[in-house]
Design a protein around this nucleic acid. Structure first.
Lengths: 104, 104
DNA sequence: TCTTTATTTCGCAAAATAACGAAATGATAT
DNA sequence: ATATCATTTCGTTATTTTGCGAAATAAAGA
């Protein structure tokens, strides 16, 4: 028997997004962007989050790589905003996962 | 300035759940339990997931530790089911995160 | 008692992650 | 040309995660 099917692309991709959100610092950033419905700067975040500048930069990079945020250069700042298109995609995915079984 | 506030318990806890879901194997298991609205056995999973028995066992342990599933001993099997109470909590958390900003 | 069966724990190795401070970058202002 | 500024990249270290196979466990059957 033993099919050992590869896990689907959808599952793998969704897990990637969940993983990106699965760190307090990164989740905090996303929550903040959602709550404010706005963008923010690394310099603002570094005052609110107990982590050094370079570490924060790494987390921003990961969120960007996961497609959840995007950065616009506004010298000497970089303005980080939600990637709304991708976020909407993610929202749909999660909604499916979380609500298709409300009867539980 | 530099407040360096600790991140809130809520954010930290939510990140823990997201992290637990942030692996393809673990997400697959949860998706399966949701879809079937039922329980499953480690032995079933090992035929569907491309990973060894001991590795699978580790992932089940992590899902259990994160409170997402629970296991009932049914010798010689162990029946794994969603922890419905905790799942409902998680569902609410995520719903808040993902839907409070549908206007985006 | 000795197997068998399903599953977990153990011990290990490889890879990934998280964090830091120092140095680099790139743009502007002096 | 040099200094400043916000931010990133680099190099490093410590820790965690992922994965495996071998051995252990625990229950039931021969």
């Amino acid at each position: 028997m033993k099919k050992k099917t590869e896990l689907s692309i959808e599952t793998t991709e969704m897990a990637r997004v969940l993983k990106a959100l699965g760190h307090p610092v990164r989740l905090y950033i996303i929550q903040k962007l959602l709550k404010m419905n706005a963008c923010c700067y690394s310099g603002d975040l570094v005052d609110e989050i107990p982590v050094g500048r370079s570490t924060l930069s790494q987390h921003l990079k990961e969120l960007k790589y996961a497609g959840l945020i995007q950065g616009e250069v506004e010298p000497p700042y970089i303005k980080y905003c939600l990637n709304k298109g991708n976020w909407e995609e993610a929202r749909k995915m999660f909604n499916e996962l979380f609500t298709e079984n409300e009867q539980l």
